[in-house]
Simulated assay, not measured.
Amino acid sequence: MDDEHQDPAGTEPRGWFKRRSGWQKALIMLGVLVLILASGVAGGGYYLVSRYENKVDRATLLPSAAPEEAAQSKENWASGPLNLLLLGSDSRAPEAGGKSPIGERSDTIMLVHIARGRDKATIISIPRDSYVEVPAGGPWKGGKNKINAAFAYGGAALTATTVKKLTGVPLDGAMIANFASIRDLVDAVDGVNVCVPYDVRSTFSDRVWKQGCHDMNGDIAEEFMRQRYDVPGGDFGRIKNQQLVVQSVIRKVAEKNLLYKPLELDTLLGIAADSLTVDQNLDLRDLVLAVRDIRPGDIGYATVPYTSADLKTPAGAAVQLDTAAAAQMFAAVKSDTIDQWLAAHPQHQPGG
């Protein structure tokens, strides 16, 4: 759901956390899911995936691929780099074809790149308000719009087409993530400790997170991640906050060695599996193999470069992407050199 329909004044009742879902849960889920899946082909990973596979919803999330693209994707799963689309949605199960009710938008759009060597991954956030060319789909006739409008008009398939047009990166799989509540995941690891590089003041309560480290339970972590108006960088600061919580959850899972504690692992896998809708052609066992050697320090986070966060458009204020820098980033993804490109082009951090 867009912030235009949210309540920045903080007048919503406390139950709003239960009713909200999408980008917050999606990003957290992905980081933890990658690490959980990486836990263990050698330690029973196939059995665990089989056990929870029935909890994962299936839908057609990607448009039909040309024969040569399908063949290349099959080759990528065998020995090449992989690129997956992750969306966050307010709807638990999309309609056939991954379509969403008109008006529902995806608050998370991320490109997940898994290196050819299967030893590292990069999660690239595409700002949901990016002003891009959205191809025709549903009632939309095609043209410039915010990128998250693609989900409203044509579901996951149109979003995938839009992302491919923007990036030039072929997609090897797709997932939609949605949690019933972030508290279930964060509380399942007994809370997280998040280190904040700037002051954040809540617009929903009297909480203030001063620069430094803070213990957070599920409720507090979600409130922190939802801040936009009193965060350095606005929506980009919010993306940074998402990444901070992701890293904290992954670190907590590793510190507590939860991947090798059956009861705790059962809880985490159950939450992760129940939150996912997966493209019908994505084999979870193949995903296990692809990420089994990836560890917390092997996951990088980035945002598509931009030049303005307040571009005036017919669709309202939008994000103007940095065309040249973004093209370089996407070219690095295609050539499997994104980590080198990011090292050579360090990204500005909000509040930094």
Rank of each mutant, 00 (worst) to 15 (best):
G143Q: 04
I147M: 11
V134M: 05
P81G: 05
T161E: 15
S91Q: 11
S100R: 05
K164I: 04
P127T: 05
A174R: 01
A93H: 11
P67W: 10
H113R: 03
G138A: 01
R118L: 05
W140S: 10
S64W: 09
P81L: 05
T167M: 10
S130I: 01
L84V: 12
D107T: 11
S130P: 01
A66W: 08
S100C: 04
A149L: 10
E53V: 11
A71P: 05
H113I: 02
T159Q: 02
I114G: 07
T161G: 08
L62A: 09
G168E: 01
N83L: 07
A59P: 09
P67I: 06
R105D: 04
L61R: 02
A177G: 15
P139H: 05
T60P: 00
A59F: 12
K146D: 05
D107K: 03
K120E: 13
A78T: 14
Q72S: 15
G117C: 09
M110T: 10
S79N: 14
L85Q: 04
G98Y: 05
P135K: 04
I123G: 03
R92P: 14
K74T: 03
A70T: 13
T159C: 10
P139D: 03
E75H: 10
L85P: 10
I126P: 03
S106Q: 00
R128C: 08
I124M: 14
G154N: 01
W140H: 15
I182C: 13
A177H: 07
A149F: 10
A174W: 05
Y153C: 01
P63K: 03
A71E: 13
A174C: 13
V56A: 09
N148D: 00
I114H: 13
E68W: 06
I182H: 00
L86M: 12
T161L: 14
M175L: 15
P81C: 06
P135R: 04
E104T: 14
D90M: 09
P63D: 02
P67T: 08
K55S: 13
L171M: 08
F151E: 01
T162F: 07
P81S: 12
I109M: 15
L61N: 04
T159R: 01
S73C: 02
P139I: 07
D90V: 11
Y153D: 02
N83G: 09
A156N: 06
E95Y: 12
D129L: 10
P127G: 00
K99N: 09
P101V: 04
D90E: 13
D107W: 09
L62K: 03
P67H: 10
S125V: 08
S64C: 06
K141N: 12
L61Q: 04
W77N: 03
G137W: 02
G173S: 07
A152K: 01
I124W: 01
S125D: 10
Y131A: 07
I126Q: 00
T162K: 00
E68K: 14
P81N: 06
N83P: 08
R128S: 05
K120A: 15
S73L: 00
V169I: 13
A71C: 06
T159W: 03
T167F: 04
N148H: 00
G155N: 06
K74A: 11
N148K: 01
D90S: 14
T108P: 03
K144G: 07
R58K: 14
A150L: 06
K165I: 04
A78V: 14
A70M: 10
N148S: 00
V112C: 08
T108R: 01
R105K: 13
I147K: 02
K144H: 12
E95V: 07
G137C: 07
K165D: 12
